[in-house]
């Protein structure tokens, strides 16, 4: 198997995790930047729709590196999908698959189920819940929490900040609650 075939396969956690962790020192050494992604959403508000709200009146240009960084993430996603995509179907845990099938999900290909995240569902109840409501909660929640998985769970925990541990536990509780308690109701509505 040659190198390209090897990197086309899904990368294991012990390769991906350390590379992601190295973003912390890389950004600090390159320019004293603390790793954190959700603030990019705030900078977009500050740049485009500040609407005279004090929270959006700050020098967002000083944080423009963050917008360049997230643009890079999108380009990386594009390059990875174009040139390094895995020719095989995603392998997910059998137990997860059967749980999702029990909820009514039938598609298990690609990185996201097309029956929830396909463009043909944008203007439907599915789009309203999985795109609009989900996105709103991500944007509102991360800013209210002062960070997301990158700023709190990775950067904050790496720097032994206990408020970041509180935030990380809250993220997990919210996700577990949605998955195990609310999903059965939501999936009944849409399937």
């Amino acid at each position: 198997m040659d190198f390209i075939d090897l990197i086309r396969q899904p990368w294991p956690w012990y390769i991906a995790g350390p590379i992601i962790g190295l973003t912390v020192p890389a950004l600090l050494i390159l320019g004293n930047k603390s790793f954190g992604i959700s603030s990019s959403l705030r900078h977009m508000c500050a740049a485009i729709i500040p609407s005279n709200i004090p929270f959006f009146k700050y020098d967002w240009k000083k944080e423009s590196w963050n917008l360049v960084f997230v643009l890079g993430i999108a380009i990386g996603g594009f390059l990875g999908a174009q040139f390094l995509s895995d020719p095989n179907e995603i392998v997910i845990a059998e137990s997860t698959k059967s749980d999702l099938q029990a909820l009514g999900l039938t598609t298990f290909s690609g990185l996201m189920p097309s029956e929830l995240f396909g463009t043909d569902h944008i203007f439907s109840l599915r789009g309203l819940i999985f795109l609009v409501l989900g996105g709103f909660l991500v944007g509102f929640g991360t800013r209210y929490a002062g960070g997301c998985t990158s700023g709190h769970s990775i950067m904050g925990l790496s720097n032994l900040q206990w408020p970041s541990l509180v935030a990380t536990i809250s993220f997990m509780v919210g996700g577990i609650l949605m998955t195990n308690v609310l999903f059965p109701f939501i999936f009944k509505l849409i399937f």
Binding site: I37, L137, G139, G141, T142, T149, G175
Partner: peptide, 20 residues
């Protein structure tokens, strides 16, 4: 960090994505 964290967690499970 608690209230916002919970809200983000709910959204994370729905969208399958954190902001990055």
């Amino acid at each position: 960090q608690i209230f916002g964290g919970l809200a983000f967690g709910l959204g994370w499970a729905i969208t399958g994505a954190c902001p990055g």
